[in-house]
Amino acid sequence: METQKSYKKVFLLLFVLLIAFFLVNISLGSVAIPLKDIFASFFGGDVSKSSWEYIITQYRVPKAITAILVGSGLGAAGLFMQTLFRNPLAGPFVLGLSSGASLGVAFLILGAGAFGGFLSNALVSEWSLVLASAFGSFLVLLAVLAVTFRVKDTMAILIIGLMFGSVTSAVVAVLSYFTNAEKLQQYVFWSFGSLGNQSWNGVLILTICVLVGLFIAFFSVKSLNALLLGENYAKSLGVQLKRTTLLIIFSTSILAGAITAFAGPIAFIGLAVPHITRQWVTTSNHRVLLPAVLLLGAIVMLICDSIAQIPFSEYTLPINAITSLVGAPVVIWLLVRKKKLLF
């Protein structure tokens, strides 16, 4: 696909913004830490207070990296789904992927609780959480795809996504009836969504998952561009539709599943970030669009997380609430101002 404009400046700006917001995100929190000390703790210099160094390296940096991974991953997942379903309203949350992931996690946490004792502790490890949630989102995506083969209607697909959301909450309600309060609390806190409290080990697992998901998608960039023309055109251009679709679904499930496992169901990032990106980067070429979405997704998530921290206070808001507060108005604004959402 030919793209005449050069987007070097946009990428440079996005990159600078990413670094800036990364540093801002780390310096803000219940205690404000000056930039000087942040750099000192990065490069092994003298930090004014030893507790600061601990806060930065063990809490804030893992959290900021998680934010970057979550924002980039969900943004990319949203972009892929909008192209795959050729639907501007598609996104991991809207289509019920996050619900599917939640269901997987609910079965794991609450179901394991029902089995009781020894088994439950063994089951709920970081990896099993990732697997359960990726599997849940994979199943939902397959179901949605099966529906799109039969119904070509945009609305129907979105309604199916909503239905999965309802089914999830119903199943969770049933499961919670049979579990103890402790497990239920664990699930409820997970479902609020949180970027913090990640161990370095957890961050590593999340990084691997996101990289694997993006790696698969990276090889589908050309086919994704062809899909912009519609299925028939893509086929006539020699694209192997089934293989491409499966690869993209696989990539999206890993991204959305792993992220949901670690950070809880996070709304609107997947839907809104690709649209915000398209306001700046006016091409539809995924070779340009995907990196821009990755950068912008990371920036938006860092901002949301900084707000959720409520700087200089001890309160932390659920990240899911902030992304909804930021994301929903953006989507409404795009619909009202631009009259239409394009993908």
Binding site: M1, L228, L229, G230, S284, L342
Partner: peptide
């Protein structure tokens, strides 16, 4: 049918 994505430029 027109291309699925109307956001494509003619050149693209």
């Amino acid at each position: 049918e027109a291309p699925a994505s109307k956001n494509l430029s003619v050149l693209e």
